[in-house]
Amino acid sequence: MNYEAFGRAKTDAPTIVLSAGLGGLGAFWKPQFAALSERFHVIAYDHRGTGANKGALPEGYTIAAMADDVVGILDEAGVGRCHFMGHALGGLIGMELALRAPSRVSGLVLVNAWQTAASPTRRCFAARLALLERSGPEAYVQAQPIFLYPAAWLMRHEDSIAREVAHGIAHFQGVENLMKRVGALLAFDVSARLGEIAAPTLVAGTQDDVLVPYLCSEALASGIPGAKLWLAAEGGHASTVTDPDGFNLELLRFLDETAYA
């Protein structure tokens, strides 16, 4: 597994691992890089099957296998414990990691994640997969911003969205890999195990997220002992991109309370 490490030295600061959603690319967290680099040793990675770790995924690929990939990265990097921040699918990886290897997780930040996929989430993925199967990868990537960003934000950022779509088409992870990754996230269900997560946790949601309703974040925060819930009024599914200042402020407030406690 290839990964990037930057920011402060791991001997001088806590480590935070950043895990993206279905797109899988560590660059998703670019709006957080500068803020985190000042205080943390940062590890960002592309999920297996995407980007720098592109390659065919095995049959029956699971969220547990994705969590094992993170353990491998930590071992390779010589990091014993870390804070872990995951967006959507990345949040599922974080919860699985906290359950499988609790001694490796100092804290969790779960952004627009879920304990089990709700009906609106399944409906969105069914529509996206139908588009992929019937119209191909280009149509799938062209439609993706609709699920990620609020309409008003899309109108104000047409140029950046065009570049993002062009990059997504050029570096598409492959139909088979995407299907396996979607299958893994839809099969994930941690409902019966939330109470076992012992790491300090921030659950961040967005009230206008059409892909993952904020009720999913409320359920996570209720089920994870001591979890803190932060709901933004707007920002869509990719609120870390659409409102980085607001998100980073809340993120650093939580990390300051836990990473340096």
Rank of each mutant, 00 (worst) to 15 (best):
N2R: 12
Y3Q: 02
E4W: 09
G7A: 04
A9S: 12
T11Y: 05
A13P: 03
P14T: 13
V17K: 01
L18K: 06
L22Y: 03
G26Y: 07
F28M: 08
A34V: 08
A34I: 01
A35M: 11
A35Q: 12
E38I: 02
F40C: 04
F40N: 05
F40I: 06
D46W: 06
G49L: 00
T50L: 02
G51A: 12
K54C: 02
G55I: 04
G55M: 05
A56C: 00
P58T: 01
P58M: 01
G60N: 00
A65Q: 11
M66K: 01
M66T: 00
D69R: 03
V71H: 07
I73T: 10
L74E: 06
E76A: 15
E76R: 15
A77M: 05
A77T: 10
G78I: 14
V79P: 08
V79F: 11
H83M: 12
M85Y: 00
H87Q: 10
L89G: 00
L92K: 03
E96R: 06
L97R: 00
R100M: 12
S103K: 14
V105R: 00
S106D: 14
L110Y: 03
L110E: 00
T116F: 11
P120Q: 12
T121Q: 04
F125H: 06
A126E: 14
R134W: 04
P137N: 08
V141I: 15
V141L: 04
V141T: 05
P145V: 08
Y149M: 14
A152G: 00
R156L: 07
H157T: 02
E158F: 06
D159E: 11
I161H: 10
E164S: 15
A166M: 04
H167N: 09
G168V: 05
A170H: 11
V175I: 13
V175Y: 02
R181F: 01
G183D: 07
G183K: 01
L185I: 14
L186F: 07
A187C: 07
D189Q: 14
D189W: 11
V190M: 00
V190C: 07
R193K: 09
E196V: 04
P200Q: 08
L202A: 01
A204N: 02
G205D: 02
D208R: 09
L211I: 07
V212Y: 07
Y214C: 15
S222G: 12
G226T: 03
K228T: 15
L229C: 06
L229I: 10
A232F: 14
A232M: 09
E234Q: 13
V241A: 08
V241R: 13
V241E: 14
T242G: 10
P244C: 07
D245G: 13
L249N: 09
L252S: 11
L255I: 12
L255M: 12
D256S: 09
A259G: 11
